[in-house]
Simulated assay, not measured.
Amino acid sequence: MMLLAFALAQAAAVPTTDATALGARLARSGSIMALLPMVAQKDTEELVAAHPELSADEQQKLRETAKVTFEAGMTRIETAFGTAYAKRFTEAELRELVALAENPAQRKLREVQPAVMAEALGSLGSLDLKADIAAAFCRDTGKLCKR
């Protein structure tokens, strides 16, 4: 009897194809998916710049390779996030979340997020949370102070 309960619990943990597809749509609408193209572009250009020995044609080929590799990575990320969402939400909840995420205002939010993040982070200057925490702890307790 316990084996049957375990088997049923395991079967329930495997999301349906529809739920996984909805989860992937939800993942595509997430903030991380808006940022990843910027990261890929930056990494690609840094890689090209790090190899000045490459001809112009080879640099173009490297950029094309990066694009294909990035697209494959995005598919893997969407699938992983989609499956994780599908395990945690019902199909009805996923449909509702996807509808919210795909409305025009949300789309615009995702579209401007990378620029907003870059601007906001750029205006903050240097951030070192670990050092700030240690300094605050030092002020409060006299411990973890740099000498």
Rank of each mutant, 00 (worst) to 15 (best):
G30F: 06
G30M: 15
S31P: 10
S31C: 04
I32Q: 10
I32P: 02
I32C: 01
M33P: 01
A34F: 01
A34L: 02
L35Y: 10
L35S: 05
L35I: 14
L36I: 09
P37D: 06
V39P: 00
V39C: 00
Q41K: 01
Q41C: 00
K42N: 01
D43F: 10
T44P: 08
T44F: 07
E45K: 00
E45Y: 03
E45R: 04
L47G: 01
L47R: 12
L47F: 01
V48K: 04
V48A: 07
A50V: 03
A50N: 11
H51M: 09
H51R: 15
P52C: 05
P52A: 13
P52M: 03
S55E: 09
A56E: 15
A56G: 05
D57V: 08
Q59P: 07
Q59C: 05
Q60N: 12
Q60S: 12
K61E: 13
K61H: 06
K61S: 08
L62E: 00
L62I: 03
E64A: 15
E64I: 02
T65I: 11
T65F: 12
K67Y: 00
K67C: 01
T69L: 04
F70C: 04
F70H: 14
E71N: 09
E71P: 03
A72N: 08
A72G: 07
G73H: 07
T75F: 06
T75E: 15
R76S: 14
R76K: 15
R76F: 07
R76C: 01
I77G: 07
E78H: 07
E78I: 02
T79P: 01
A80F: 14
F81V: 11
T83H: 14
A84I: 05
A84P: 03
A86P: 08
K87D: 06
K87Q: 15
K87M: 14
R88M: 13
R88C: 07
F89M: 13
F89I: 12
T90W: 10
T90P: 09
E91F: 11
A92F: 05
A92T: 13
A92R: 07
A92W: 04
E93P: 07
L94Y: 10
R95V: 00
R95Q: 13
E96I: 05
E96N: 11
E96F: 06
E96W: 05
L97A: 14
L97I: 10
V98M: 11
V98E: 11
A99H: 10
L100F: 13
L100H: 12
A101Y: 12
A101I: 09
A101N: 14
E102T: 15
E102R: 13
E102L: 08
